[in-house]
């Protein structure tokens, strides 16, 4: 019974944060662009979330006649499903987790690699040139960045001696992993931005060139799923960064562990939005070159040095 409560709690929490991020992102972006942002609907404009949701639900859900219908319908679901599944492994507190898995990090990597399908299939099923180009870019970009994402986490795994996220958090009692694993953190953060195709790396949807990329043909709640999936992805990556490198729920005891994790997560969500506010989009080949020629050697070097030091200390 308690377990079911936790599952429902995590689900509601993740979806609430993702919906709330619609408002948070617009307000923060406007702060950084010297504007005010949405402040009309409800107090502080918080009703904007509700208004947006109502709008998305009641929009016409149009499936183009030239689309591959079953795949077209399936694609947005995969994105939300894979990301929501990954929330299961995040420890929100000492005894507040859905699934205490021995292969926690591998579970996350597997799910994030399955998330690629949503975008690739969505773009392909739309049967539209722009969507297709977006899907191609997405598949290449996400395949590339998954590699470093996995490699950058292996340093943490070696230091904690486990794939289990609870064990990793426990292992950070002596000090957060950000200090010994700074390179790993940087690589993971950049790969995380690319994996959620957030703004500096949003070339799969690049609205300047590709209309809306892979979700050009989507409307109504199907577009809403892609939309929510993106915010869920931001929340997930932020929570994982907080868990893996910043001690997760660890913190001084005047606040409950759950609150500590939330503070850290929202800090990184803020950085995600700050990146969107400040950086321009790189060209596609620049992105790939940066990935393979800078991040991959960096991640491998980090792995090598971490392993060597760990063996030396033993």
């Amino acid at each position: 019974m308690n377990h079911i409560l936790i599952i429902v709690g995590v689900l509601v929490l993740a979806l609430t944060i993702a919906a709330g991020l619609i408002w948070v992102e617009r307000r923060l972006l406007s702060l950084w662009q010297d504007r005010l942002g949405p402040n009309r609907v409800g107090p502080l404009g918080l009703g904007q979330v509700l208004a947006d949701m109502i709008k998305l639900f009641f929009k016409e859900d149009w499936i183009p006649p030239f689309a591959d219908k079953p795949v077209f319908v399936l694609a947005p679901g995969i994105l939300v499903l894979t990301i929501l599944l990954t929330f299961a492994i995040i420890p929100f507190g000492p005894h507040f987790y859905v699934f205490n898995s021995n292969i926690g990090i591998l579970f996350f990597l597997g799910n994030s690699s399955l998330g690629v399908y949503s975008i690739v299939l969505g773009g392909w099923a739309s049967n539209n040139k722009y969507s297709m180009i977006g899907a191609m870019r997405a598949s290449a970009q996400m395949l590339t960045y998954e590699v470093f994402m996995g490699l950058s986490l292996m340093g943490v795994v070696m230091m904690a001696d486990s794939f289990n996220l609870n064990t990793i958090v426990e292992a950070q009692k002596g000090g957060w992993f950000i200090i010994p694993q700074f390179i790993g953190f940087v690589v993971f953060f950049i790969a995380g931005v690319a994996e959620t195709h957030r703004l500096p790396f949003d070339i799969p949807e690049a609205e300047g060139e590709l209309v809306a990329g892979y979700h050009s043909e989507y409307s109504g709640m199907k577009f809403g799923m892609f939309f929510v999936g993106e915010y869920l992805g931001i929340t997930l990556i932020s929570a994982l960064i907080a868990t893996l490198f910043f001690g997760g729920w660890l913190g001084p005891s005047f606040l409950p562990p759950f609150v500590w994790l939330m503070i850290k997560t929202f800090f990184f969500i803020g950085i995600f939005i700050l990146l969107r506010a400040s950086l321009p989009r790189p060209r596609y080949d620049q992105l790939m070159t940066f990935g393979w020629k800078v991040l991959l050697p960096l991640a491998l070097l980090n792995l090598l040095i971490t392993g060597a030091i760990l063996i030396f200390l033993k």
């Binding site: 950084w32 010297d34 504007r35 005010l36 400040s278 950086l279």
Partner: peptide, 20 residues
């Protein structure tokens, strides 16, 4: 790049240009 991010962050303390 870091400088860009920092300068954008400083805009947090600027007055909004919006006319309500």
């Amino acid at each position: 790049i870091l400088q860009t991010i920092w300068l954008t962050f400083l805009h947090l303390f600027h007055k909004a240009e919006t006319v309500q």
